[in-house]
Every structure is written in C-alpha cells, then in structure tokens.
C-alpha cells in the first residue's frame, strides 16, 4: 500500500521567483517525515510539489524529479489528477465541504474515482474511514448532519477520513494542527501514529515538539534571506536531529535561538 518517495534536485518556481532550490531527500514507506523550518522557507511548497498541488497556483512549476516507488510524478504521461488520487492531502485549516453531510464528505473522493457503488459498500467505507480517523464514535449517530456542524478538531479528522477513504499511497499533511486546540492536536497526533502503520506520511509543522513526538525523520529547511530560495539544510532521524544535529542552523532553530 504505502510507497516511498525520492526527491532529487528539486527547484520550485512561482513565475520568475525561485522559491525552493536543490532539494534532495527520500521518504521511507510507512514512516512519518516532518518538514520544519521558519516561515517562507518553502517547506509547504515542497510538500505541495509531491502531489502536484502547487500547479493550482498560476505560474508555479517545478524542476527536478519526484519519484513515487520509482515512477516519475512529473512524467509526460502522468495525469496530475491521478497523482492526487494516489497522494492524499490534509490542509492547515479544516476544509470539509460545507454543503455535504459528514457521510458525503467521507465519500467525496470515492465518488470521483468510481462513481456510485452499492450502498452497503459505501457504508462500509464510511465506517472504516471514520474509524480510521478516530471520529466514528463521535459522529456515528449524525452522519447526515453537515460536516461544518462539527468542532474544528473533528472537522480536521473528518478531512483525514475523507483523504484515507480512497486508500492513498501517501498522506501529505500541511500544518494539520495549527488551527486546533491542544486536545484536538493530541487526537490528531495519536491518529498519525496509527496511520503510519499503513501510509507514508509527510507532515509540515511549525511545532517543534510535534515534530519530535510524531516523526521518524525530520527535515530542516531554511532560507538565506528574504527573496532568496529556501533550501534543505539537513535531514536525519528525528532523534538525531533533536539531540545532535550536524548543522549549526538546525541546532539554533530547534533550540529557539533563531534569527
């Protein structure tokens, strides 16, 4: 199910502006990789290039290679729509479809891929996905209520359920907890721990403790200055990164002596 990702020499541009330069790293299947770094260092941009979501922004393009189990995500015969069906994404702000019920939100991606299926199968998927997102017990009696009626943390778990309903190979999370309170954050972190049994997870976070808690590998991004492209400074096992980083910049950032 889970696949590995190999990024080689990736440059990312927004029009003429080079946002990210020379990024090379690998993500092991069934692991959690955290991307950390100051604002504007390009970590979210890198995350979005993994499923070609950056292409949604006019003028954005990437140069370099992103391989999913050896298959080039940017190959000429690759449909970005299929890439996004294979690599799911969870956003910073919970974004359930407000006009859909909880159930329809979970099924949204599935209906795109295969149209209508037998009702029993749909219900199985809804329950499995909501259980997978640790939300089932809280919403099982109100699956027809609007998704927007849930609390922020529940909405975010609903978005995770929606993403895993289509059984993706990889799950990308762009600061999934930054809009949530500490209790909801804890719920999501526990969930990430469970999800990595089945999925390859890449998470962008501003929260150092979160990176230390949930990730196996940590990548630190930095930029030389405003208007300069972001770079990958260091990537290593999370324990090593937080106890014994090789780069001074990493240590400064992690210990809060930054800037």
């Amino acid at each position: 199910m889970a696949k590995r990702i190999d990024v080689t020499d990736l440059d990312i541009y927004y029009g003429a502006f080079k946002a990210v330069e020379g990024v090379t790293f690998s993500v092991e299947p069934r692991s959690v990789t955290a991307l950390i770094g100051p604002s504007g260092c390009g970590k979210s941009t890198v995350l979005r290039t993994l499923n070609r979501m950056h292409e949604v922004i006019p003028g954005a393009y990437a140069d370099g290679s992103v391989l999913l189990d050896g298959e080039d995500v940017y190959g000429s015969d690759v449909d970005p729509v299929n890439v996004r069906r294979t690599i799911g994404m969870v956003f910073q702000r919970p974004n359930p479809f407000p006009t859909m019920s909880i159930k329809d939100n979970v099924l949204a991606g599935l209906k795109l891929q295969s149209g209508r299926r037998p009702k029993s199968e749909m219900e199985t998927v809804v329950e499995r996905s909501l259980r997978g997102a640790n939300l089932w017990d809280e919403v099982k009696d109100r699956l027809d209520r609007p998704g927007a009626s849930l609390s922020g943390g529940q909405q975010q778990r609903l978005c995770i359920a929606r993403a895993i309903a289509v059984e993706p190979q990889v799950l990308l999370m762009d600061e999934p907890c930054s809009a949530l309170d500490p209790i909801s954050t804890l719920a999501i972190e526990d969930l990430i721990e469970e999800l990595k049994e089945r999925y390859t997870i890449v998470i962008v976070t501003h929260n150092m403790q979160q990176a230390a808690r949930v990730s196996d590998t940590t990548a630190f991004f930095n930029l030389a200055g405003v208007g300069k492209p972001g770079r990958l400074i260091e990537i290593a096992a999370t324990q090593v990164m937080f106890s014994n980083p090789t780069q001074q910049a990493t240590e400064d950032y992690i210990s809060g002596r930054f800037g």
């Binding site: 729509v81 956003f91 929606r162 993403a163």
Partner: peptide, 8 residues
C-alpha cells in the same frame, strides 16, 4: 483545493 487534492 480540497476538491483538487482529492483528485477532482
């Protein structure tokens, strides 16, 4: 973006 990220 939610729709596009689902592969719409």
């Amino acid at each position: 973006e939610a729709a596009l990220a689902l592969g719409a």
